[in-house]
Design a protein around this nucleic acid. Structure first.
Lengths: 300, 300
DNA sequence: GGTAATTAATAACTATGAGTTATCTAATAG
DNA sequence: CTATTAGATAACTCATAGTTATTAATTACC
């Protein structure tokens, strides 16, 4: 009997936890089914914990197995990252920062950050991925991202969050709509319109904020469509299917037959925040975070 | 040649990185020096990175090695934590204990309990709520709390009660009051004063105890005010509206212009007891209770 | 209800590679 | 210039991961 857990065990465990099927998992791992069975069993013996329930013909995770699955995902992933970073370090580079972002952060903030980063730390590589708010938090948890840009007011324990960009909101109207910055007074003029918004799941904060803007103007908006893509929202507005309220910076980067009217005189702002995990060990991340913090403080 | 890194490699690597001496590291690991040498070398081959510089007779870490050391420390540690947590999860030790308490328990006992709990059962979450004696009993009955800290002598059937903290009483006087620990003899010196007490509903035991203290001193106190908050009581004393007798530990945690004189020589003590329902099924509660019982018995 | 198919576990075997002992080379200390 | 101490090399062994073959048990299907 072996006395120690090895990474092999974790890899095997993860395969079974994902497939919930020994033969298929074994196939995926390119080993035989009995070998896999024995390794998993051994693992349970070493850890002194049941990980799977093999009742009848079904394999299911126990509570402990469920927990371990999450941890193993994290550990194996962290290991991959470490290996990669190790190469960079050995070459005298700083490594890679994996950044997640909402589409609306791409208009201005991210490009600026990247240019700055390239300038000050040419050794730091970046990878960029457009991900929703919640998916970013998840990815950060599992160490699949180092840093995110989200529109959230609160984040789980262990996370740092820092507002980095404040934007006004703008009303988005079809081009031929009989309102313009000249005769526009406030949002209440749109109280009879259908609203097209980013879906609540995608960004609860955004959703609540829009609601509060309308409430302040004395009405509850009829929401006819929800989407997760600015492009879709604009397309719907273009086709007279409703009006929208979005962060102003989204007006750049799209070619649509819609017009923007900036809501300069309302207190609500679209706040984009940088999030990262407190205990992230990526040395390149520190530089990246500091760069943005410096910038934010200089801007004031 | 092996193709994959295993945890063994990490453990070996860490030993060498710490000792910077193969033979000593091998000894520590209870393996032979050549075996260790080969594993480290293999590790370098797999990772395709030099981790040590073996110049002459000295072993030193490369930059990459230095980086990896930090990561390996993190990973191995994370692993230990995970293994521990896993046991807890499998035993159902994850979960929440809802604790009710009197304000006066917060000064010392509760913080200590929480620290201990966090240490021994990091998976157990706690929720804390300041509730009066009777409300705690009610909440326990309704299963809105798992555990309470009360000053009561008796509890209904089906409840367990266990004294966990014994405190002396102290007289609370306005700062400029013409009595101090020097010239204070006993409570009878206060027989003409108005008394400010915790209300009878809030804690019958407390109320009766104060009465018995005064009776023992040969007088029946005039009670001018009753309150459920220590803060209020102290505020009233501060403003010369009367004197009070409270558990001594309440003197910490408030900033007031009042002075405490401890009643060391009377038999009455302020007893804080832990209460919980006999048939509570919360497995996390068991741990919590045992922790406190152990502690109480160790203290004796 | 009985046969076929599919599951994971068990048993017996094999072969890879971790770890062993013995030895070598090289550097410093005294 | 030996004696000592370092890590690397070489040859061996042995534990065990992973193999094939089989069993046991459940479900699916006619």
């Amino acid at each position: 009997m072996s006395y120690l857990i090895e990474l092999r065990h974790f890899k095997y465990f993860l395969a079974v936890a994902e497939e919930l099927h020994y033969r298929k998992a074994a196939e995926k791992l390119n080993i035989s089914q009995p070998g896999l069975s024995r390794q998993i069993k051994q693992m349970e013996e070493i850890l002194e914990v049941d990980l799977f329930v093999r009742s009848k013909r079904k394999v299911t995770l126990t509570a402990a197995g469920e927990y371990l699955k999450g941890e193993v995902e994290f550990i194996l992933n962290h290991l991959e990252v470490t290996k990669k970073q190790l190469k960079y370090v050995s070459q005298g580079d700083f490594g890679e920062v994996r950044i997640g972002f909402l589409g609306s952060a791409m208009q201005e903030l991210i490009p600026k950050l990247l240019i700055n980063l390239k300038d000050k730390f040419p050794g730091i590589r970046t990878s960029l991925e457009e991900v929703s708010n919640n998916a970013q938090i998840n990815a950060l948890l599992k160490d699949r991202l180092d840093m995110g840009f989200v529109r959230l007011s609160r984040v789980p324990d262990g996370f740092n969050i820092k507002p980095v960009y404040e934007d006004t909101f703008s009303v988005v109207l079809p081009e031929q709509y009989p309102l313009s910055s000249q005769n526009f007074k406030d949002v209440s003029q749109l109280s009879k319109e259908n609203f097209i918004l980013f879906s609540q799941d995608y960004s609860p904060l955004y959703y609540d904020t829009i609601m509060s803007i309308c409430e302040d103007a004395g009405f509850t908006p009829k929401v006819s469509h929800k989407s997760v893509h600015a492009h879709t929202i604009f397309k719907l507005v273009e086709n007279n299917l409703g009006v929208a309220i979005v962060p102003t910076s989204l007006q750049y980067g799209f070619q649509m037959k819609v017009k923007f009217i900036e809501l300069k005189n309302i207190p609500q702002k679209a706040v984009l925040s940088m999030v990262w995990k407190e205990d992230n060990r990526n040395p390149a991340l520190r530089h990246c975070v500091n760069l943005l913090l410096d910038e934010a403080s200089n801007a004031n």
